[in-house]
Design a protein around this nucleic acid. Sequence first.
DNA 1: AAAGAAACTGTACGGTCGGTATAGTAAATA
DNA 2: TATTTACTATACCGACCGTACAGTTTCTTT
Lengths: 204, 204
Amino acid sequence: MPSKGEQTREKILEIAEGLILQKGFAGTSIDDILRETGITKGGFFYHFNGKNDLARHLLLRYLENDQRFFNALFERAQTLSEDPLQQMLIFLKLLAEEMANLPDTHPGCLVASFAYESQQVDATVRELNRRGLQSWRETFQTQLDLVAARYPARTEVSAVELADMLSAIIEGGIVLSKVYADQAILVQQLLHYRTYIRFLFDRV
Amino acid sequence: MPSKGEQTREKILEIAEGLILQKGFAGTSIDDILRETGITKGGFFYHFNGKNDLARHLLLRYLENDQRFFNALFERAQTLSEDPLQQMLIFLKLLAEEMANLPDTHPGCLVASFAYESQQVDATVRELNRRGLQSWRETFQTQLDLVAARYPARTEVSAVELADMLSAIIEGGIVLSKVYADQAILVQQLLHYRTYIRFLFDRV
DNA sequence: AAAGAAACTGTACGGTCGGTATAGTAAATA
DNA sequence: TATTTACTATACCGACCGTACAGTTTCTTT
């Protein structure tokens, strides 16, 4: 059982994340967070040294959750097939399904949020953001390397670029989904990426 | 020759855009803009009714410029080939070249910026944002329809989704380029989209 | 039960925010 | 020359910003 402090901390992080994704980092005041959580300013500063400290913990939590999420989907894909290409394709299908099953449209990605407010956060957060993208790159690249080792690509492609393409599709798909208020778009785009992977490595 | 007022107006818009792409909309104060432009608050409010009014004009200008930019590249592509598929492929190559020739990394896209601060701008700006994405969709879709009319796609694909994919690649590519501080990524991603189009319609 | 640490509340601070108002002025235009 | 355009300069507002800290309650350990 998490201590009371941990619970409050988690509540602050949870609510702050939602607010920041809708209003931006600079646009979300500490008072906004206090209003939603019900705690007072002193309580907030007991847990965090300030807004930038909040941003750092927020991003850390977000990246860890995302990593866990991706890992879980890859593990599930690995139980369903032994072939690296099929695993990748299954992973993408599972990811698309998860995005389709969200209650509303995707709330947004903190990495993109901070990327567009880079001057509002300190160098630590910017660096953390870079590392976050890099860890996604490595996660996807690892699988794509396995694919490329077994299947000759139709055209010579870089696994890193292809890994980045998935990140780009996710980030871009989220932006479009947000603006159109239609989660289907992110799903469609993920499936297009999947088709591209199939064209590259599968004998279609 | 633009009148003195027009010049000042343009200067405000130009500087505000740069600031907003780096610090976000809420994170950019009117005072910030005054500092950079050298005008006073009275001067600013002579030209704009407030921050939201600025946002609207900013987005309008941005979308018009972008539309002109895309149109110019399509026209150039049309002078180089009569075939719709080749025109699309040339367009994408030209677009990638333009992105590669930017002096620094891509400064960002206002559409994404406002998408991640949707609660900070009024409904007019949000609607304008949607229309902006929609006009890109139509621009790309028009060309892709011509392609699909002449070339049977390898897999049945929706021209709208494929058009949105380009927008997503651009938006996502910009995010990655910003975070990694490397404009090459956006270029790579545009070329991957190009390869996907080739796989879909061309006999590779 | 006492002590101490953890988890806050309450309040106050100086600064800045977007926005408004107004008086004055220089330059372009009719 | 008269009028409009395009500002400057200054002052002000209430709201809110992030920060600080002294005090109080709640939990945990001994």
